[in-house]
Design a binder for these strands. Structure first.
Lengths: 148, 148
DNA sequence: GCATATTCGTTTCATATGAAACGATATCGG
DNA sequence: CCGATATCGTTTCATATGAAACGAATATGC
């Protein structure tokens, strides 16, 4: 019989949504920033400058969402948006001083929060969980491709 | 450093969203039913009749979403909605014949799809993954409570 | 070179979402 | 009993979402 509590697609969605809500509450309350905006920041924190499309590829967000997040961040003075010199279709996105400062404040807090969350697992368990998640994601891609 | 690919809240969201999309495509295309609607069906498949509130509790959906899903299902002739005899605030939701027939068609397919997805893990891995997910969910509740 | 196709990012549009207000019913305290 | 409070489900409202249309810029084929 189909028991929803045992149906993994459902369980994963509940878990993911709860994590998101938890994090969103913190980002929003403390820094006035949404999750999509924070994702853009996080990606820029790793590599800079990037085009919107680079961010789409790295973030698993669609381009409309990225476009909106970027616009907000620019309006908030957190990132700078100019056009690529040799290809004017591309944006060149990078932190402003203010944006970098905010990133440097948020990133450790996000990691620390994750740490508090994950400390219910030991090293091995965490590694296991990540490995299994990756497997599931790979298999999912397979199945998706089958249908297309 | 904060690497989004290694940030579990993010990873989980990507995975959960992809699973949802994959499933939604099938439900929608084959049966003309949305995920919230399917969740209501799945819950009724286990226990019947139930009030809307029962479904809210069992589904981790908010009551507005449940209300909409129920309305759609009633309009589609898949479930019956009458009022509880001794408490007129409560609905009494149950399958129609047509609804039960549809449930009996979908449930095996959903399980079979899950099977195909999960067969990339062996018994032990799957058990492990579920156990770890449950741990993470428990810890999340702890953290959420701390803030409140 | 020039017409065609492609890529990039924005915007539009229709739909989904959830918090809060709401009306209806039921319960509780005095 | 009856006024105050709580519960149930719907609806409203403001916002989020993503597919598709779009304009601008570039690449490609002839």
């Amino acid at each position: 019989m189909l028991d929803l509590d045992d149906f993994l697609p459902y369980r994963l969605n509940v878990l993911a949504k709860r994590v998101s809500r938890e994090l969103a509450r913190r980002y929003e309350a403390q820094f006035g920033i949404s999750i999509p905006e924070w994702r853009v920041m996080a990606i820029l924190g790793r590599e800079q400058p990037l085009s919107s499309n680079d961010i789409v590829e790295r973030s698993a967000m669609d381009k409309a969402k990225v476009s909106r997040a970027v616009t907000s961040l620019v309006e908030a003075g957190l990132i700078a948006r100019d056009t690529h010199p040799s290809d004017q279709r591309l944006l060149r996105l990078s932190f402003t001083v203010k944006g970098k400062a905010l990133y440097d404040r948020i990133a450790p807090l996000a990691l620390e929060w994750q740490q508090r969350w994950l400390n219910c697992l030991d090293e091995a368990e965490l590694a296991q969980f990540k490995a299994l998640s990756a497997k599931l994601e790979g298999q999912l891609e397979q199945l998706a491709r089958d249908v297309l």
